[in-house]
Deep mutational scan, measured.
Amino acid sequence: TIEDAIKKLLKLAQKGQPYTFGDFTVTSEEEAKKLAKWLKKQL
Rank of each mutant, 00 (worst) to 15 (best):
G16V: 09
V26F: 05
G16K: 02
K8H: 13
K40R: 12
I6S: 00
T1S: 08
A32S: 03
K8A: 13
L9V: 03
Q14S: 10
V26P: 04
K8Q: 12
L12T: 05
S28T: 12
P18T: 05
Q14Y: 08
L35N: 00
K33R: 12
G16R: 05
A32M: 08
Q42W: 11
L12F: 11
A32D: 01
V26Q: 04
K15A: 12
G22C: 15
K7C: 14
L9Y: 03
E31A: 08
L12C: 15
K15E: 11
A13Y: 05
V26A: 12
W38R: 01
K8M: 13
K8F: 14
L10E: 04
L9G: 00
E29C: 15
G22M: 15
L39D: 00
Q14F: 13
L39I: 08
L39M: 03
V26K: 03
A5E: 12
E29I: 10
K33L: 13
L12Q: 03
K34T: 04
T27M: 08
K41L: 11
L10R: 01
S28A: 04
Q17W: 14
S28I: 12
V26E: 05
T1P: 09
A13T: 06
A13N: 04
L9H: 01
K37N: 10
A32N: 03
F21R: 01
E29M: 15
L12G: 04
K40F: 12
E31K: 03
K7A: 11
E30N: 09
Y19M: 07
K34F: 10
A32W: 06
T27L: 09
L43N: 03
T25N: 07
A36H: 07
A32Q: 02
K40S: 11
A13H: 03
P18K: 03
P18G: 03
K33M: 10
V26N: 06
E30P: 02
T20P: 14
D23T: 10
A36R: 04
L43S: 04
T20G: 01
I6C: 15
L10G: 01
D23V: 13
D4I: 07
K11T: 14
S28G: 04
T27Y: 06
F24N: 01
L35E: 00
K8N: 08
Y19W: 12
K7N: 09
E30R: 09
K37L: 13
K33S: 05
T27R: 05
K7H: 09
P18C: 15
Q17S: 03
A5Q: 07
D4E: 12
E31Q: 15
L35Y: 01
D23E: 09
L35G: 00
D4W: 10
Q17P: 15
A13K: 01
I2Q: 02
E29L: 14
D23I: 15
L9I: 09
F21S: 02
F24P: 15
G22T: 04
K8P: 00
K40G: 08
P18E: 09
E3P: 06
T20V: 09
L43C: 12
K7E: 15
L43E: 04
